[in-house]
Design a protein around this nucleic acid. Structure first.
Lengths: 203, 203
DNA sequence: AGACATTTGTACTGTTTCGCATAAAAATAT
DNA sequence: ATATTTTTATGCGAAACAGTACAAATGTCT
């Protein structure tokens, strides 16, 4: 933590709070449909402050994605607490995802990465990189937990943890898409439950 | 087929071919980042012709989505040919999806619906409706095939066809997202294979 | 206090955007 | 032929857009 006071006029706002506000805008509108006026209004910062602090719109979007990725990773690691049974781990993982995905003013917003970064990934290489890395990280976190479960004999010896983890992620991706497509909470919860059953075996 | 000659100057272009060209633009750029100039250039139609024939940008996008949905449904029904074993049905379904998803100039384009409509679904109710209906149709087509397999004793009696079909769709959704995120063909094919194994039981 | 460095607000620039107005072009109907 | 109807092409226009110049404001350093 570098707390050395810098010379010059100090910043009148909290940068990470501003990124948080920007995240909300991007989450609702996506990257392309989010204008700097929208971002400026949401953050209560005028454009030069945004440019000075974060760079251009794509830089700010990448910052928002990165913050979201980090938050999601913390939440995921927490849901996958190894002192709980794997079955409960997965249920918690989907529960938390749904709580996030279903939030929204008019319609559910899904996942910032899956639901807004995907469309930009073709033409914005840096977005594609963040998205790919994030998905790989999520896969990996689940894989590690499953590998531990196999080691502990809580899952069949022969299961391939990597493949099974990717399949578990797959359900999260679909929940994000389906939430944004307007499916009901009940339908999504049912899908999550049957996913847990398929992965861990019926209860 | 109404072939009665209409009065007035006849159209100098094929409307469905134009929608096909527009589909490519939307597929690469998404709805918001696709400009009328892009669409005009790709279709070789000037703006008034586009407006006259299809309405505004959102109308054209909805037409493109609808055409894609219909094409995808035909391909899906074909992949699910009931005279083939279910296991092969699913493998074909994922194979064809991947062939489509991996196409693209610089990066893979994924699925027009999943990868570009999702982001617009929050703010454009009609897009959300098309997306939701399309996902439900795909789920249903798979469910029907699985129900038939259960009836024929090719899947365990106790399996819930609806839940299993949603899980099968789930893998398609993830393939679309992951393709666009830059995952390799090999990785995606491996995921599809382990999905088939999980749903139909190991070979 | 005065030099310096950084942030902030206003206002601007040049471009891109969507959608349309207008008139010419190309067909049929009478 | 003339009128009618629809499609094309040019090009307009008003708004939204991303990004920046400039000067005032607000802090630290010497």
């Amino acid at each position: 933590m570098k707390d050395e006071k810098k010379r010059g006029r100090p910043r009148g706002f909290d940068a990470s709070a501003a990124i948080g506000k920007a995240r909300e805008v991007f989450w609702d509108r996506g990257f392309s449909a989010a204008s700097l006026d929208n971002l400026s209004a949401a953050t209560s910062l005028n454009r030069p402050s945004l440019y000075n602090a974060f760079g251009d719109k794509e830089d700010l979007y990448l910052d928002a994605l990165e913050g979201y990725r980090a938050d999601s990773m913390v939440a995921l690691e927490d849901a996958l607490d190894p002192s709980l049974p794997v079955r409960e781990n997965l249920a918690r993982m989907y529960d938390r995802a749904l709580a996030t995905y279903l939030h929204g003013d008019t319609a559910a917003r899904g996942c910032l990465l899956i639901s807004t970064a995907t469309v930009e990934a073709v033409r914005h290489e840096r977005v594609r990189e963040v998205l790919g890395r994030s998905l790989a990280d999520f896969d990996r976190a689940i894989e590690d937990r499953l590998a531990l479960a196999i080691e502990r004999g809580q899952l069949p010896e022969k299961t391939d943890p990597k493949a099974l983890a990717q399949l578990a992620s797959t359900i999260m991706h679909s929940l994000a898409v389906r939430a944004r497509a307007g499916e009901t909470r009940e339908a999504l919860e049912a899908l999550a439950r049957s996913g847990v059953d398929l992965i861990c075996g019926a209860p």
